[in-house]
Design a protein around this nucleic acid. Structure first.
Length: 202
DNA sequence: CCCTGATTCGC
DNA sequence: GCGAATCAGG
């Protein structure tokens, strides 16, 4: 892969948004985060300097490892947020239905959360979760790392626990299953086989 | 351990 | 110019 205009543009955009190099790399594909960082530096936007005015560096008389860069730069770990990949099936009791897809609404809605015209078709009946799975989840939540949104990565379980509208909200944070957004226990309740219901009626 | 960006240096 | 290896942190 080469740095085409398009790719560079994406790079700039994402970097500008505060995305991490690794994320950008994944987005672009075909490159590693090192490549991204290297490019970022070559483009001269290593540091997200707002103003362009870049005072010339003072002539350092250090023949060796001088400090051409502003080192005393207080690293700004500016990270807006990973990706709202997970939202919050609001819940308080150790027993509820997370639905197969945690929507993307961390919106601190008021009270009357009326799923007005929210299209929720792909959601047969997220109910009927095996008691075992639920019990498992109950235990897991005690062991949860209770990580914050900021700490979510692609390898941490993104299962939301608690009420997003209060302080009692965190994410499971246990190691997630490869390719899955949740840890084993939560994958268990999140992805139902779609036939846990012995539909005798009808 | 996971992750972050920064720098170096052979290609 | 490129990016893997390495470094230096959190």
């Amino acid at each position: 892969m080469s740095w085409t205009d398009e790719r560079v543009e994406i790079l700039k955009k994402m970097w500008g948004e505060g995305q991490s190099a690794s994320q950008i790399a994944k987005e672009l594909g075909g490159v590693t985060r090192n490549a991204v960082i290297g490019k970022v530096h070559r483009l001269g936007l290593s540091n997200r300097a707002g103003g362009g005015s870049e005072p010339a560096a003072p002539a350092a008389k250090e023949p060796k490892a001088a400090a051409p860069r502003a080192e005393a730069e207080p690293k700004k770990t500016a990270k807006p947020a990973p990706q709202p990949a997970a939202a919050a099936p609001a819940r308080a009791e150790p027993a509820s239905q997370p639905a197969a897809q945690p929507a993307t609404n961390v919106t601190p809605l008021r009270k009357p959360i009326i799923p007005a015209g929210q299209p929720l078709p792909p959601q047969p009946s997220a109910n009927e979760i095996s008691p075992e799975a639920l019990a498992k989840v109950g235990e897991v939540e005690k062991k949860a790392r209770k990580i914050s949104l900021m700490e979510l990565t692609e390898r941490t379980c993104k299962w939301p626990i608690g009420d997003p509208a209060t302080e009692d909200f965190w994410f499971c944070g246990l190691p997630s299953q490869p390719g899955k957004p949740y840890c084993e226990a939560h994958v268990g309740v999140a992805f139902q086989p779609m036939s846990s219901r012995r539909d005798r009626k009808r």
